[in-house]
C-alpha cells in the first residue's frame, strides 16, 4: 500500500467521523422537530434560524452540568460505560461503503475505509460490544433502577440479535458474500435486496429498532418504571455520551439497512446519465445519504407513532415471533436456491 492511499484513508476516516457526529447532532434536532410536528406543535425554533442552533445549545448545557460520580459506584467502570457506548457506536462506520470509487490520476480511491471480507460480522461484533457499554454503566452505578435497565437492555439485545443474525443468514444466501462492498455492487441497477428478502428486511428492521433501544423497544430507559433506566446515575457529558451514542447508532443502523437492503449508494439510472465516473460516485454518495435520512425519518416516525411494548410482549415477539419467522425465512430461501441451482 503506498502513501497516497494511506493519506486518503486518513482524510476519509476524519471526514466520516465528523459527518457521523454532525448527522447525529442534527438527528437530535430532527427528532424534536418530527416529534413536535406529529403532535401538532412547532418544535424548537428559538435558537438561531428555525432553531438550527438548538443542538449546540443542548450540548453546551450538557457540558456545563455538574459531573457527579456516586460514592458507591465503581469509578473505573462508571467512566468506562459511556466510553464503550460511544466508541463502538463510532467504530461501525468503518466498514460501510459510503460511495463508489474515485479515480484521480489513474489511481482508484474507494469511499469505503476498510473492505473487510466479513463486513457484516464486523458490524455484528461492534453492535454486541455496544451492549457492554450499557450493561457496565448500569451495573457500575450501584443503583437498582440502573441495574434493572441494564438487565433489560442486555436481555433485549441478546434476544433480538438472534433474529437479526438469522435474517442476515438468509440475505447472505442470496448474495453469497459477507463483504458489504460485494453486497452493494450486486444490488447495482435496481436489484435491491428488499425485493428478494422482504420478510428478512422486516425482521431486520424490527431488530434494528430493538438494538438501538428505540421506541417501541425503548424499555431499558422507560422513565415511568425505571426513572432513567441504565443512565439514572449519570450526569453531564457522560449522560450526553449515552444519549448521543443512541443517535449515532440510529444513523449507523440506517446506513447498514440502506447498504444491505436498499442498494447502498446505487441510484436509479446511474449508468444512463452519461456523467463521468467521479461525478456518478459523488451523486451516489449523496443519494446514499438521502436514503439514510429517509431511514432515520422512519425511525422517528415509528417512535412517535407506537407505544412502548410491555416486557413480556417484547420477549414474546422476539422469541416466539421473530426467531421462528427468521428460521422459516432461511429455509424458504435455501429451498428456493436449492431448486433453482439444480436446473
Amino acid at each position: 500500500m503506498d502513501w497516497t492511499i494511506i493519506i486518503f484513508k486518513t482524510i476519509l476516516l476524519f471526514i466520516i467521523l465528523v459527518v457521523t457526529l454532525v448527522v447525529a447532532l442534527y438527528s437530535t434536532y430532527g427528532e424534536r422537530k418530527v416529534a413536535a410536528f406529529m403532535q401538532d406543535r412547532r418544535g424548537p425554533n428559538r435558537a438561531g434560524p428555525f432553531g438550527l442552533l438548538q443542538p449546540f445549545a443542548d450540548g453546551l448545557k450538557m457540558l456545563m452540568k455538574e459531573e457527579i460520580i456516586p460514592l458507591t459506584a465503581n469509578k473505573r467502570l462508571f467512566i468506562l460505560g459511556p466510553s464503550i457506548a460511544m466508541t463502538t457506536a463510532l467504530l461501525t462506520g468503518v466498514v460501510i461503503p459510503w460511495g463508489g470509487t474515485f479515480t484521480i490520476g489513474g489511481q482508484e480511491f474507494s469511499l469505503q475505509i476498510a473492505d473487510l471480507n466479513i463486513g457484516i460480522l464486523y458490524v455484528f461484533a461492534m453492535v454486541s460490544i455496544g451492549v457492554y457499554g450499557i450493561m457496565i454503566g448500569g451495573w457500575a452505578s450501584n443503583n437498582k433502577y440502573a441495574l434493572l435497565g441494564a438487565i433489560r437492555a442486555a436481555s433485549q439485545m441478546i434476544s433480538y440479535e438472534l433474529a437479526m443474525g438469522m435474517s442476515i443468514v438468509a440475505l447472505v444466501l442470496t448474495t453469497g458474500s459477507l463483504s458489504l462492498h460485494d453486497i452493494v455492487t450486486q444490488q447495482h441497477g435496481g436489484h435491491w435486496n428488499i425485493f428478494y428478502q422482504p420478510l428478512g428486511f422486516l425482521i431486520f428492521i424490527t431488530c434494528s429498532f430493538a438494538e438501538t433501544n428505540r421506541a417501541p423497544f425503548d424499555l431499558p430507559e422507560c422513565e415511568t418504571e425505571l426513572i432513567g433506566g441504565y443512565h439514572t446515575e449519570y450526569s453531564s457529558m457522560k449522560l450526553g455520551f449515552y444519549l448521543f451514542a443512541e443517535y449515532i447508532n440510529m444513523f449507523i443502523s440506517s446506513a447498514v439497512i440502506t447498504t444491505l437492503y436498499f442498494g447502498g449508494y446505487n441510484m436509479p439510472f446511474m449508468d444512463q446519465l452519461g456523467l463521468s465516473p467521479n461525478a456518478v460516485t459523488l451523486l451516489g454518495t449523496a443519494f446514499f445519504f438521502l436514503k439514510i435520512f429517509g431511514m432515520i425519518f422512519l425511525f422517528m416516525w415509528i417512535r412517535w407513532t407506537l407505544p412502548r411494548f410491555r416486557y413480556d410482549q417484547l420477549m414474546n415477539l422476539g422469541w416466539k415471533g421473530l426467531i421462528p419467522l427468521s428460521i422459516f425465512n432461511i429455509i424458504a430461501t435455501g429451498v428456493y436456491y436449492f431448486f433453482t441451482e439444480l436446473k
Binding site: V34, F37, M38, R41, W301, I302, T305
Partner: peptide, 18 residues
C-alpha cells in the same frame, strides 16, 4: 402499525395551532 403511521404523518403536515 401502518394505520397508526398514516395518522401521525397526517398530523405531520397539518397546520399547527401554535
Amino acid at each position: 402499525i401502518l394505520k397508526g403511521m398514516s395518522i401521525t404523518i397526517r398530523h405531520f403536515f397539518s397546520k399547527k395551532a401554535t
